[in-house]
């Protein structure tokens, strides 16, 4: 009975291409898992937002109603709502089942870069190129935002919500964390324009990628740098970064057509995943499993740790 526990397996990385979905919607600006990771949302530059099944790669629904390319989307925890934002300066709240526009929220003065639900999908937070984050109420019929966070001095490039905290990345080189519970705003200066910010799964760290081709892991409470990950190329494009599902690795898109994957603790490059020849624009990590979505141009790729042979054959035939 007293056998020692087997040595924990080394965390696996999604390095096998399982599926390629051609989205047929222009360039895929963002790809996002839904809350449980069974579906994915692809934001196309042809003004459409598409919902796909990850396991089968089939198109489930197309949501059209935006006036310009869709830049970001997020699904609510119960999969009943989707919010998306677009270059047409609007944020749209969709009903997943019917595909109808539940609410179309105007108010931003420029294109809306990022959008995010809060945990209970009661608030949508959208960050725009006009330097504001607007908090939209999904519960009421008001068309004005609850609050406008206009502390940023440049375009908001990324926003994340975790429990009672908002994390915004801004082109002015600052990562701002709004703590609703404490009523505090923490500003971390990173100098280079931020392209993407993330919370770690445990909520203790923030990850931010910036245009100096560096991804930095900062301690949330003190702002000290815990890790720095370089090697990729991120100089001009707004590309995503993320953490793996168990916070073991840091992943980032790169302009050289790879996804770079570093060990979080050591900071060493563990995987350089060749996705294609163009820019890997967006990526999304499965919330629980070792599964990765990447978006390059018009395609979305699904990556997993183990190669699925049967699936591959099915695809081939």
């Amino acid at each position: 009975m007293a056998f020692p526990l087997p040595r924990p397996q080394a965390p696996q990385l999604p390095q096998h291409l399982i599926r390629t979905i051609d989205c047929q919607q222009g360039a895929v600006r963002a790809v996002r898992f839904n809350a449980d990771g069974n579906y994915l949302l692809s934001c196309g530059s042809d003004k459409s937002l598409k919902l796909w099944s990850v396991s089968r790669g089939t198109l489930l629904k197309t949501y059209s109603g935006h006036g310009y390319e869709v830049l970001d989307a997020d699904s609510s925890y119960d999969n009943s709502l989707i919010c998306s934002c677009s270059s047409d300066k609007t944020v749209i709240l969709w009903d997943v089942a019917t595909g109808q526009v539940t609410r179309k929220l105007r108010g931003h003065a420029g294109k809306v870069n990022c959008v995010q639900f809060n945990e209970e999908a009661t608030v949508m937070l959208s960050g725009s190129i006009d330097g504001t984050v607007r908090c939209w109420d999904t519960r009421s019929r008001r068309y004005e935002p609850i609050q406008v966070l206009d502390e940023a001095r440049d375009s908001i490039s990324s926003i994340k919500v975790a429990q009672h905290e908002l994390l915004t990345g801004c082109v002015d080189g600052r990562v701002r964390r709004y703590d609703l519970r404490m009523g505090q705003l923490h500003v971390d200066f990173i100098s280079s324009p931020i392209t993407c910010v993330c919370f770690s799964q445990d909520g203790q760290c923030t990850l931010s990628s910036s245009l100096d081709s560096t991804v930095r892991l900062l301690d949330k409470s003190t702002g000290e740098m815990l890790g720095e990950y370089t090697g990729h190329k991120m100089k001009g494009y707004k590309l995503d970064c993320c953490l793996s599902n168990k916070d073991t690795h840091v992943l980032s898109c790169s302009e050289d057509g790879h996804v770079y994957c570093w060990d979080l603790v050591e900071g060493s490059l563990t995987l350089k995943l060749p996705v294609g020849k163009a820019v890997v624009q967006s990526l999304s990590f499965h919330p629980t499993e070792t599964r990765l979505l990447t978006a390059m141009e018009g395609r979305v790729q699904v990556w997993e740790a183990e190669p699925e042979v049967i699936e591959e054959e099915g695809m081939a035939t």
């Binding site: 809060n118 209970e120 109420d137 009672h164």
Partner: peptide
Amino acid sequence: TRETMEWHPDKLLCKRFN
């Protein structure tokens, strides 16, 4: 590099965030 300042969230926002 860190600055911390007081920030007042809207009442409704707090309510929505529980």
